[in-house]
């Protein structure tokens, strides 16, 4: 597959994740919390391709999540949270990609970090402030959702970001 096609495919996956997250997944929401598909895309991209690539995917996905309707929070919050997640996931990727269980564990950590970073930046900016107890509840439900959905989604996402090997390039 050519380079441009790969970039387009990755972009399509990010857009699809954002759209599904707001338009289709509210059907299964628990207290309004839905599985964070964009986070799973970012984790998969970082584990396969490393922190640099993951950070670009994280920034693009986060910014789209910040700007696409019905977002009303200060833009950049998800972008920042997901770039940090990419840096984290990219650094432990050698450990993570040899075992599916490690990937699920990584998703759990990343989910916690992402929602917490979002909550903290929101609190700093005084935007849509919720009581701390409720925020913790949201963070935990989100973590559970992401852990449940990760085994179904991440294996599908990894091949999308897979770098072609030298054999494929030569062929």
């Amino acid at each position: 597959m050519s380079g441009l096609l790969r970039v387009l495919l990755a972009a399509a996956v990010v857009v699809l994740a954002v759209v599904l997250q707001v338009a289709a997944l509210p059907v299964v929401s628990v207290n309004g919390v839905v599985p964070n598909l964009v986070l799973l895309v970012v984790v998969a991209a970082s584990v396969v391709r490393g922190p640099g690539y993951g950070a670009v995917v994280g920034f693009a996905g986060g910014l789209l999540l910040d700007l696409a309707p019905p977002a009303d929070h200060v833009a950049g919050q998800w972008a920042l949270a997901l770039v940090l997640v990419a840096a984290l996931a990219g650094r432990v990727r050698t450990e993570a990609r040899h075992s599916p269980l490690a990937v699920v564990g990584l998703v759990a950590v990343c989910s916690f970090v992402a929602t917490s970073v979002f909550a903290l930046t929101g609190a700093l900016l005084g935007d849509h402030a919720l009581p701390a107890g409720q925020m913790v509840q949201v963070v935990l439900i989100a973590l559970l959702w992401d852990v449940v959905v990760a085994p179904l989604v991440v294996p599908l996402l990894m091949p999308v970001f897979h770098r072609p090997t030298t054999h494929e390039l030569a062929a």
């Binding site: 997250q21 707001v22 338009a23 997944l25 509210p26 929401s29 207290n31 309004g32 919390v33 839905v34 964070n36 999540l65 309707p69 019905p70 977002a71 009303d72 929070h73 919050q77 998800w78 929602t115 979002f118 909550a119 929101g122 935007d127 849509h128 402030a129 919720l130 925020m135 949201v138 439900i141 989100a142």
Partner: peptide, 15 residues
């Protein structure tokens, strides 16, 4: 209503 903002964003908005 076609889209609902996730609670992870801590805001309650719909499209």
């Amino acid at each position: 209503v076609v889209a609902v903002g996730p609670m992870q964003s801590f805001s309650r908005t719909v499209t």
